[in-house]
Design a protein around this nucleic acid. Structure first.
Lengths: 197, 197
DNA sequence: GTCTATAGACAGATAGAC
DNA sequence: GTCTATCTGTCTATAGAC
C-alpha cells in the first residue's frame, strides 16, 4: 500500500509545500518579524503546532521558504551569462519587470534584509557573489581596475529599481510598462558596464 | 529665575534632544520593530517611562526622531537644483557618500520602509515628491514624455546604491573611495537624465 | 516631575492528550 | 501524527507611589 496514488508521504509533502507557499507569500508581504507562525498556519489551513513540527522554528521556516524552489517561475540567480550585450539582456530580465514580478522567495529576502540580520547576511552573500561574477565578466573585455566596483553599482542599481517597483510601489514606476523601464535603463547600465576611460 | 543659565525648560529640552539622538541612532541601526523604548531610554540614560511621557508612544518617538533636525550635517532634501549638470552634482552630493554618510534620520527611514507600513508611506511620499521635482527639471531642457519615469529611475538608482553602501555594507562598495563611486555613477545618471531619442 | 510596578497583549516554543 | 493547552519571555503602555 505504500505505492498508493497518494501515500502518507505524498500527503505530508503536499502539506509541507502548502505551508511553504503561504510562508513565502507572507514573508514577502510583511517581512520576517511581522510574519507569525500562527498567520502562516492559518493561511495554509493547518495547525500552528504542525508548522513547528515540520520546520523546527520560525527561522527554519524562513530559511526553507526562501531557498526552496517555489511554484513561481525561476529567474536564474547565478551570473553565468555570456559577454557584453548578452550580459545586459540577462540582467534586465533578472530585474523581473517582465513576467509579472520576482518570485516570492526573492521578495521575502529583499523585504527582510534591512531589518533582520540573518536575512542581511544571506542577501549580502548572494549580492557579493553576483557582483563578483559580473565583475569577472566585465573585466574580460575592456579591462580596468574597477570592474568589480562597476559591477557593484550595476547590481545595486537593479536592487534599487526593484525595491522601488515591487516593494514600495512608487506610483511612477508601477504605472510604467516594463519595456519602457528596461529601454531607459539599458543605456545607464551600459555606461556602468564600460570602463571609465 | 526663569532666565537662569540652565532653566528647567532648558534641561528638559536637552534631555529630549538626547533621547531623540539615541532613538535616531537605534532606529537607523535596527529599524522600527526591533528598536525598543527600553533600549532608547537606556542609551539616553533616562527612564523608559520618561520617553513615553515625552513622546506619547513609540510611533510618536519615531516620527519626531526622523523628522526633527539632528546634530548631523543636513543634506538638502528638496530637489531645488538648477539645470542639467548642477542637478547631477546636487544628486551625487545627496547620495551622502561624501561627508561620512547620510543623517541617521534618513537612514532610519530607509531601514524601516520595507517592513513598517507607516514608514513605507512616509518614504513613498518623500520619494514621489523628489521624483516629481526632478522630473520637472528634466523636462525643461530637452523634452520627452517620460521625464518623470527617468527621474524615478534616477532616484531609485541612488536609493539602491545607498542601501548597498550604508545599510548592507556590501564589501565592494564599502571599500571604494567616494570619488570613484560618484565618478563611475555620473555617466549612468547622465544617461538617465537624457531623453531616449 | 520622575520612577516603580504592573497591566495587558502577543509571540515562539513545548508537553502531553487523543 | 495531529492538535489543545500552556509556559516563558518580551514588549508597549498605564496607574500610581514618591
Amino acid at each position: 500500500m505504500t505505492t498508493h496514488a497518494t501515500s502518507r508521504t505524498d500527503r505530508r509533502r503536499a502539506t509541507e509545500a502548502r505551508i511553504l507557499d503561504s510562508a513565502r507569500g507572507l514573508f514577502a508581504a510583511k517581512g520576517f518579524d511581522r510574519t507569525t507562525i500562527r498567520a502562516v498556519a492559518a493561511s495554509a489551513g493547518v495547525d500552528p503546532a504542525l508548522v513547528m513540527q515540520y520546520f523546527g522554528s520560525k527561522r527554519g521556516l524562513f530559511t526553507q521558504a526562501v531557498q526552496a524552489p517555489s511554484s513561481a517561475p525561476r529567474t536564474s540567480e547565478g551570473g553565468e551569462a555570456g559577454d557584453g550585450e548578452a550580459l545586459l539582456d540577462h540582467l534586465l530580465v533578472t530585474l523581473g519587470l517582465k513576467l509579472g514580478g520576482l518570485p516570492d522567495g526573492t521578495l521575502a529576502m529583499l523585504r527582510s534584509m534591512l531589518t533582520d540580520p540573518a536575512a542581511a547576511d544571506h542577501a549580502r552573500g548572494a549580492l557579493d557573489r553576483q557582483i563578483a561574477g559580473i565583475g569577472d565578466a566585465l573585466s574580460t573585455d575592456g579591462d580596468a581596475g574597477d570592474a568589480e566596483l562597476r559591477a557593484a553599482l550595476i547590481v545595486t542599481t537593479m536592487v534599487g529599481v526593484t525595491i522601488g517597483h515591487q516593494l514600495l510601489s512608487l506610483t511612477t514606476l508601477r504605472d510604467a510598462p516594463a519595456d519602457r523601464v528596461t529601454a531607459l535603463l539599458r543605456p545607464a547600465l551600459e555606461a556602468l558596464a564600460q570602463p571609465p576611460g
